[in-house]
Design a binder for these strands. Structure first.
Lengths: 345, 345
DNA sequence: CTGAAAGCGCTAACAC
DNA sequence: GTGTTAGCGCTTTCAG
């Protein structure tokens, strides 16, 4: 395929296009950027030259002058396995991706797992590689993520945590599902079904979503005058769910229902329940959270709290895009949850 | 710079650092790039200024002059769900990520699903945003991917397909597992166990890995003088596996073993087998492929062909890094497979 | 050891 | 309409 004997010409530059088309660089730039005032003939000539040279504008040069990279980062402070193992992320990414496809921006996924605390990611984000960032699965330990907001437009997926582990700062943009209300729905359903010894398996306690779901569970129990002592902590993995279910059963043999903060953990809990000879839902009713693949793929279809995850991705991307366009989107978008009734409760 | 430099406190520039430190821009550049010949005092002063200003070099500017972005793309021609649903990708990404963490390069994940055939990804890749690309899950339809190799160092995960759907061109770099041999191992094991009516469920026929595994299955059967007519095509999803297993059973009721080209498909096939009342491995022995989570998480631990997936990611990244460093790595790296014996066969 | 000067490839006033 | 002229922020000879 290498026809010519001439030395590798490297990527063609705008200047070469200009020369081939017999015009100035400014004119080439105009047709590339679809400026209205270019004569048809010249435009055609330039386009021909571009095609012939297979020219693609150099982004670095363009970014440098335009002060914009037209790309945004999706920062995921998780290791690859956690990220890939949870269908929740797939939905979010799909939503983000869909919304971005309708824009000029490209998505740039940055896996920033804690284990390598190099600040390559930080330098990347702050070094002008992206115009804005989307952050999902934010832990309270992620200090630098909490701070990049000052230097770059950032939209969080899920309420971000401040260093005290309390509420999101009013300066942050975030979209979240109404986790507390979702947990409330799920737990109330258990209560209405006549359950009384209702436990919960939480997510990691450094994540707001996990905390909010725990609060919802607790609120439902309290409004019904029931005890909220049956609690075990998981980590949003199947293994963690299995382990936590074991703890719950050990400490509270009377357990007759569990509200579990994610379907993935519920899938693990189901295994433990089966091993201990508890029949679901007869002996122990289970309500999950997410309505992910795990809700329908397991041995028992899960009653679960559905959240519009893909929609969340769309809204996140949309919010950031508006920010970049200089608009003033809502700082907080709370998406509704819905209880899906299946067989486990 | 005609107006006073009282401009908005955007990101600090190298020039501001130079002014604060009382040196020239060249000197600042030297300390940033760890040039050996800078006096300790000056170096300290510059570093102090950098810290005080919270300065991070602008990548676009640096790329422009250095003609390198220090970032590489991981291109995945799949939609988000396929990508996230398959643990195979998690391992590859983890491997790539690990290797890259030890380098100066950052990883840049580009989901390029066919559904949006905009050539944003192409422009991104060719527009000087990355210094090289890693491509996994390459389908034969992805023409542009087959062509970027001419403009950019590219390493494929899995043997790339040319337009005739036959073999990889000798000009491509790729790392692959020895799929044919793995399938051979798995199928031979079935034969040695006394099975005779051995079917297969393949992956998508536009993927070399799927084709190679099919070939291995066929070769094992032929060398044993057995029929290779029991074949059904899946698509590397659980549903596809379930469906294909149904077809196989319908058409060949005498089936006593299946070699399935992925554990994920095998997990689906297991469901179908159970529905049809076939006990595994008593009635039908099953050998999967991948040794992924699905091999151990399902109802029956899967005998499966393990491939060093994470290692594959490491080698891919390593090959590209060598290429970028001007070295001459092997064009083809074939990684070995291993049969893992569990309960399904 | 350090500074001055010349661009990297592109866009954006400002002229003509 | 189209060309000219300045840079965007950084690295890099080349002097001193």
């Amino acid at each position: 395929m290498t026809h010519g004997t001439v030395a590798a010409p490297g990527r063609p530059t705008l200047e070469e296009v200009a020369r081939l088309a017999g015009v100035s660089r400014a004119t080439v730039s105009r047709v590339i950027n679809a400026s209205p005032r270019v004569s048809p003939e010249v435009q055609a000539a330039v386009e021909a030259a571009i095609a012939e040279l297979n020219y693609v504008p150099n982004r670095a040069a363009r970014s440098l002058v335009a002060r914009a990279t037209m790309s945004i980062a999706l920062v995921v402070p998780e290791d690859a396995h956690r990220f890939f193992g949870d269908p929740y992320f797939a939905d979010i990414v799909q939503g983000i991706s869909d919304r971005l496809d309708a824009s000029e921006y490209v998505l740039n996924l940055q896996l920033a797992h804690h284990s390598s605390p190099s600040d390559k990611t930080r330098r990347y984000l702050l070094g002008g590689n992206v115009d804005g960032a989307l952050v999902v699965s934010h832990h309270s330990g992620d200090h630098f993520l909490a701070s990049i907001g000052q230097a770059l437009p950032v939209v969080f997926g899920g309420r971000p945590m401040d260093e005290e582990g309390t509420a999101g700062r009013p300066t942050d943009y975030y979209v979240d599902v109404d986790n507390r209300h979702g947990a409330l729905q799920g737990t109330r359903y258990l209560i209405e079904s006549g359950r009384r010894a209702i436990g919960t398996i939480t997510g990691p306690r450094d994540m707001p979503a996990a905390l909010d779901r725990e609060t919802g569970w607790r609120d439902a129990l309290r409004e019904a005058g029931l005890s909220d002592e049956r609690i075990a902590h998981g980590d949003f993995t199947a293994d963690g769910g299995a382990r936590a279910a074991g703890e719950l059963l050990d400490r509270h043999p009377d357990l007759d229902a569990i509200f579990i903060a994610s379907d993935l953990m519920a899938s693990g809990a189901l295994v433990t329940l089966a091993e201990r000879g508890r029949v679901v839902p007869r002996d122990v009713a289970v309500v999950g959270y997410d309505d992910s693949l795990y809700a329908t793929r397991g041995p028992i279809p899960l009653t679960t709290v559905a959240q519009p995850t893909k929609q969340m991705g769309i809204v996140m991307a949309d919010t950031l895009l508006r920010l970049l366009a200089g608009e003033q989107p809502d700082r907080v978008s709370l998406l509704p949850t819905e209880l899906i009734r299946r067989e486990s409760a």
